[in-house]
């Protein structure tokens, strides 16, 4: 079946099997491999992308279901050479170690800040409960999101 969707501002029509998951459409059909597959069971959040601006786990969404909708992946966050403020926050506070969870963490944080622009540290921790980091990096991840929330950059 054909699925037409906008990914990072570009419209695509992709011929996929009916059972194709959104994460496979992004990675295998569009070559957007920033979105990782971690647990593959809706637990770890590594595959988090934005669907019409809201975080979802792309391993648990059918590609067919998002026909006509808009998806943002990590590749779509930066404005040319200018990083998104959440990306800047992760760099400034070293909010990563191995980096595997990072794309999902960043996308979850972008969605969280869209819904709660000035969260407390506790609200950030709770807001990222759907994303697992196995390098014990939560402390710096929370600091990175708070940095992004406080940042003066308009984006």
């Amino acid at each position: 079946m054909n699925v037409t969707l906008t990914v990072n501002g570009v419209s695509h029509t992709v011929d996929v099997e009916d059972r194709t998951l959104l994460v496979h459409l992004l990675r295998d059909h569009l070559g957007l491999t920033a979105t990782n597959i971690g647990c593959d069971t809706t637990s770890c959040g590594a595959c988090t992308v934005l669907l019409d601006g809201e975080s979802v786990k792309s391993c648990t969404v059918l590609a067919a279901s998002v026909d006509g909708q808009s998806v943002t992946t990590l590749e779509g966050l930066a404005d040319g050479e200018r990083w998104h403020r959440v990306q800047e926050g992760f760099r400034a506070k070293h909010g990563l170690q191995c980096g595997f969870c990072t794309p999902g963490m960043v996308m979850a944080a972008v969605s969280l800040l869209a819904e709660n622009p000035s969260p407390t540290a506790a609200q950030v921790r709770e807001g990222l409960e759907g994303n697992l980091c196995r390098c014990t990096g939560y402390h710096n991840i929370v600091a990175a999101v708070l940095e992004a929330a406080e940042g003066s950059v308009a984006r």
């Binding site: 988090t48 669907l51 809201e54 975080s55 979802v56 969404v61 969605s111 969280l112 759907g130 994303n131």
Partner: peptide, 9 residues
């Protein structure tokens, strides 16, 4: 329920 991503779907 679940987490924010789950609650969005």
């Amino acid at each position: 329920v679940g987490d924010r991503q789950v609650r969005h779907r």
